[in-house]
Design a protein around this nucleic acid. Structure first.
Lengths: 224, 224, 224, 224
DNA sequence: TATGAATGAGATTTCATTCAT
DNA sequence: TATGAATGAAATCTCATTCAT
């Protein structure tokens, strides 16, 4: 009884907070869409506001400024990618399979109509304090990929290569999809993700006649 | 035969024109450097002017405006790439060799400290009249790559694949180098170009055990 | 006598009113503190709200707007000063003593940590309708001081002088304390008030050797 | 001969620089006028620009921003006051005469229609990097006054007092003139400066009957 | 009474571009 | 050819105020 008012007000404030959080997400999604279309620097706060359907002044209730919006966009998509990386690591499939899974998730995450954000591709524009944590995350992700590749090379599953360079080649090819992919085009995001990851992994797997003739059991291809 | 005075003035004007042309090139190179560092939208005319060591007002003696500078940057690097494409076509090596040659030239062109311009990577910002001819050239270039790949597939040199998608994967991986390559880093531009093209072509070549008998399987899946 | 129910509700409403009045005072004090720190124009409603520990929207339940807050700050401190002026007038001490009392009260009022408001120092920012009554009060106060000085001059207690100018000199010296006084400093507000009023009055009192026979060479005017 | 072009261009650039410097001064004067009327925070760049007769954007050719304009206003008037202080120190008149001279210069500097700047009165609004050097200068000036007073006390020319407090009283009375003085009023700036300094010094000088034998009494009380 | 959301006007500042010299 | 001055539009951001709850 006595607590009812407290409880109610607590509920109310909880509802409010949840609603505010939801609004923040909507804004981030809207911003990601505009950033993808026009790039960060060329996007105005007014455009973000229009896309999110609020006044430009009101944006500043939810975020400190344009930089912070970009920061959260980047953070969100990096988080998703790190999750995919962790999930792949947890599986016990071959390195090739795990790597393919990560690349597919990466591409799907970029191209996802609703939530997709290529925003993490523009990092240099942020001020130090916001850039550094993003770069940390990005590097953590890249390192994860590199280690997968290096591991595959060690087991002989992958051909010898400069793991760092190949990682970046894969990331480049994957990130580039955000530039050319059109949802109304002939192929779905999922199908693009599949084909692309196939191609990128194929360049990694050791040649079948394998120079020194390493293990017979290769990744995705039995006796091949 | 013209009179000496005419001749002299012609010479003089020729010298002047040549000098002006050289200055234009210097400016384009300077602009390309800044665009690569900061992106087009975030780059100010004053920054370009400072990098090219002239006053911002004076830029307008050489170019109509910022857009035109970007236009010529893009045009120049696309021209160089189209030349490399033509040169590769003229050779009679295998498709793989020719394609590798194009990719190597592409990467070297992007990373070349002096002339490299990653500027063609931002096309959408230009107004129609400047954008359209650039897009034409860019598409011509992409089509050239795609045809090489398709040809290789037809001869069985390359595995079956979606040539459009692989083309874009290759372009993505190659273009991305402009983002991460640091000239002071451990590898030279040429060495990066070599390794990257190796990896990208390897993903294309038909499985080693089947150069003479390409599998009947379809694109990216089939009976595999 | 009213009925109990009425009485009760009247009491309740009285309590409420009293409570609301107290809240208004708290807000005014908080606002005065912020105004003193940052100046009126540079102070935001949110800062006032934060200092008074309520939401910025809620400020508008107590005041019509920022201007009105400033108005009441100024009005309150002017009222206190006018009271001190009246009290001094009511005493039958010498002019010098009465004037010193007013100045001491003025300074203490400004420096008083809790209630002090230097806010009346910014008058011009208010819109006419709010500014005029404040200016009236301020002028009334200044006139009171001026008359004290003029009276002292007439009785020979003070040296001849431009009463208006000396009044303003005194007000300036007194008001300025609000800028430099720090409560954590070596001297208390009261001690500062004492010393300052001593100095300011000493400049007024007629030279010792001429209380009844002022020197022939007066202030700004030769043989007059 | 050969040098003539060089010389000419040098002259031209010298002229340009001088003109630019003159423009900067005009802007500072204009800004000082507006700051005096409306206060720093309440003054918009547009108002400054209008008063200085140029576009608001163009202000940024001459100054980094509003803060820097205030900084230079303050710096200029503090420089003038420090000069007056140094000049007074160089004279060999009595302490009272020297102090009076400084105060007169101070007031004239504030009220001077053309160059006067009360802008140094708002210091706290500046960011650290600009505020610190101003505060240094201001403190140097205040210290100069304080030492003059302390010296006068030592020689017996001035009555015993808290030199710091009296310094601030004098500064307060002097600075306050910027608030109430109207050039179209009955008294000239010079006349105000004279009368005010007379009054302020009179409060300092030792009682007339004791020039040779200053009372042993302490600070603010004694046998008076 | 109280709040957070919302807004529109206006602040400072930037910037591509033009112009006088 | 070259420059610095100048401008107007637009960008980001702030803020007093109002509103729904």
């Amino acid at each position: 009884m006595v607590h009812s008012s407290n409880t109610r007000s607590k509920d109310a404030s909880g509802r409010l907070q949840r609603r505010a959080e939801a609004r923040r997400l909507e804004i981030l999604r809207a911003a990601a869409r505009v950033f993808r279309r026009r790039g960060f620097a060329a996007t105005g706060m007014r455009e973000i506001a229009a896309e999110a359907d609020l006044s430009s002044g009101n944006l500043y209730h939810y975020f400190r400024g344009k930089d912070e919006i970009l920061y959260f966009c980047q953070d969100r998509s990096l988080e998703r990618m790190l999750e995919a990386l962790a999930a792949a690591r947890a599986s016990d499939a071959s390195e090739a399979t795990r790597l393919r899974e990560v690349v597919r998730a990466h591409v799907r995450c970029l191209l996802d109509e609703l939530d997709g954000s290529a925003a993490h591709l523009e990092v240099e524009v942020l001020p130090r304090e916001l850039r550094d944590p993003i770069i940390d995350k990005r590097d953590r992700y890249e390192r994860g990929l590199r280690r997968m590749i290096a591991a595959g090379v060690k087991t002989g599953e992958f051909a010898r290569c400069d793991a760092r360079l190949v990682t970046r080649a894969i990331l480049g090819a994957a990130n580039w999809t955000a530039r050319w992919f059109r949802p109304e085009g002939p192929r779905s995001a999922t199908s693009v993700a599949d084909s692309l990851s196939d191609y990128l992994i194929r360049g990694l797997v050791a040649d079948c006649d394998s120079p020194a003739a390493p293990r017979p059991a290769a990744d995705s291809g039995g006796s091949r």
